[in-house]
Amino acid sequence: VKAPSTGSARATFAALGTTAVVVVTEPRRLDRAEQILREVLDAIDLACSRFRSDSEISGLHAHAGRTAPASALLTDALAVALRAAAVTDGLVDPTVGAAVRAWGYDRDFASVVPDVALVERPGPAPGWWRVTVDERRREILLPRGVHLDLGATAKAYAADLAAGRAARETGCGVLVSLGGDVAVAGRGPADGWRVAVGDDHATAGDQPADLVTVQSGGLATSSTTRRTWRRGGRPVHHIVDPRTGDQAPPVWRTVSVAAGSCVDANTASTAAIVLGAAAPDWLAVRRLPARLVSTDGGVTTVAGWPADTRPGGHVQGVAA
């Protein structure tokens, strides 16, 4: 990624199995902002990682069927995930954990086994409404047999949390990106934060891509071409339709959404992948600006997302 045109400064490091980026408008505040981001990521990983046997969520699974005390962070992260499920009518559902594991995403992505037979065809998610969170008392009741996967929202929640905390503490504008899920807070650059939107967050800055500016809130991209592997000889990606337990339909390669927060952007982009062909209308009625790239590369923009500026890019717009 080329150096930004403003007087900002950035730090990049590996975290949560992806790339973490923090950008500040005051270069001398970079170290503090990076420290805050690292603290938030360490805490989120320890609370929410289903790949760590010592994580709080692994302990919760071990105590399924009984009310268990939980940290403020896990309580909040689970409440955020349940809210995402409620506002999408279950298109994004944290109880999809067993299905995601059955498809083979049962360890840190770098260690996922490339291809073996699919042992058992996953079924529908048990349902987010079966999980009880008491936010005031910080207690969680996870029914037996329900496995949580907070992957869809916990990372975005961490981006919102870190950007907000760093902006408050440093007093400058802060952008946090976790694997391409972007949150901004504080007073940003005068012309907005410039974000390159592409199929792959690692190369979007180098490849021909949409270049947009955002002023506040969040921007997230969900993809069926990143984090892919094979099961039973069939290509598999990490987004499961909670209603069936099957892979989300191969309609969109990537969906990028802008919203009031990174969590809301990520919730909508994940829901759009699951919805498939119905996604543009679903996004438009919610006034969520979005850029959807079909599996054949055609670009659809929705609800005020700028028309594709790539040379040769062809656009099919959907009115808000």
Binding site: V1, P4, S5, T6, S8, R10, T18, V21, V23, V87, S177, G179, G180, D181, V182, P189, D191, G192, W193, R194, V195, A196, D199, D200, H201, A202, T203, A204, G205, A209, L211, V212, T213, V214, Q215, S216, G217, G218, L219, T221, S223, T224, R226, R227, R253, S256, A258, A259, G260, D264, T267, A268, V285, R286, A303, G304, W305, P306, A307, T309
Partner: peptide, 30 residues
Amino acid sequence: VPQGSSGIQPPAQAPAPAFGSGSHASSGGS
């Protein structure tokens, strides 16, 4: 349609086109 505090919050402003080169961050598949 869920909106407001109980729904998915739209952005205060839609993304605007940016021209030229250089970006603060990238948003791609993850």
